[in-house]
Nucleic acid binder design. Structure first.
Ligand SMILES: [Mn+2]
Ligand SMILES: [Mn+2]
Ligand SMILES: [Zn+2]
Ligand SMILES: [Zn+2]
Lengths: 146, 146
DNA sequence: TTCTAAATGAGACTGAATTGCACTTGCAGT
DNA sequence: ACTGCAAGTGCAATTCAGTCTCATTTAGAA
């Protein structure tokens, strides 16, 4: 969305005890600039297309570091590849509707569901840390076409 | 749980347009006999330990066929291996709490969440087919020990 | 500028899952 | 029961996302 400049991105990395390498800055900038849920290969190819020299290993390692610092979220849509999206803090949580036809992803947040999840955990003496909720189906556009 | 005999299992397979091979019967019987959420390799090893000759490829292909017939559910707990559990029809749906320490899986079903999910889909013009909800955290026992 | 721990690049490697192909078998039809 | 053959199986080769090794490079502190 809003294009953060390189200095801002470098500071963000340093605030999270990460060396501000050109590869990491480029990766963060890419994730800041999109609403997509890219996988590692897509990120790798986008960076290369943007004249950034980077290796697959570095993409994976950088993403791992960013996820560990909660700057990025790692998502499993169940198709064998992990997806990544920029995380804008604790209050940024949302879940996903995924169109099985066109792959479109719709984000949502529902406070009642979140509350029920906590209640369920309490009933089971379970201490939750994270959760994922994926609803698969057909989006409005694909429904019309089909 | 209740040990279904081979004839019953064979009939189940045939009712779903699947040839009742010895491998498939053994696989179904194994899944009927457990509450676990086995992965393909565990199923393969269990069948071998039970003197059943079966190959990994057949385990994968049989599971795929059973999932397609909705006799088995395929679960992705996010650790790189798919899990499988017997499905006892449409009304058998449940979601999972997963202990990140010991791996224990607690099953639950919450009608309010299911209703909210449907509402969310309607709001987005989305036609749902399936969903998965995984809540990761620490189970009561691991909490006490930790 | 110099120094060095951390990061990167290239490619080898891993492990789950899939596939090609020759062989076997369930089972429908006789 | 016997036969024919499409469907299923076994094995090995293959795919593919992701991880690891190690030689080289670099960020950033001194
Ligand atoms: Mn998202
Ligand atoms: Mn279950
Ligand atoms: Zn769609
Ligand atoms: Zn536990």
């Amino acid at each position: 969305m809003q294009a953060a400049n390189n200095r801002t991105l470098k500071n963000t990395l340093r605030e999270h005890e990460l060396k501000a390498t050109t590869q990491r800055v480029a990766l963060l900038k890419l994730l800041e600039s999109t609403q997509e849920h890219f996988d590692a290969e897509e990120i790798y190819l986008q960076l290369r297309a943007g004249q950034k020299n980077v290796s697959r290993a570095t993409v994976y390692r950088s993403l791992e570091a960013l996820v560990e610092q909660c700057l990025v979220s790692k998502l499993d849509f169940g198709d064998g590849r992990m997806r990544y999206e920029l995380s804008r803090g604790e209050d940024d949580h949302h879940d996903h509707l995924i169109c099985e036809i066109c792959g479109k992803v719709i984000e949502f947040f529902n406070l009642e569901i979140e509350a029920q999840q906590i209640a369920i955990c309490q009933e089971n003496g379970f201490t939750p840390s994270t959760h994922t909720m994926l609803i698969f189906g057909t989006c409005a556009e694909c429904r019309k076409l089909g």
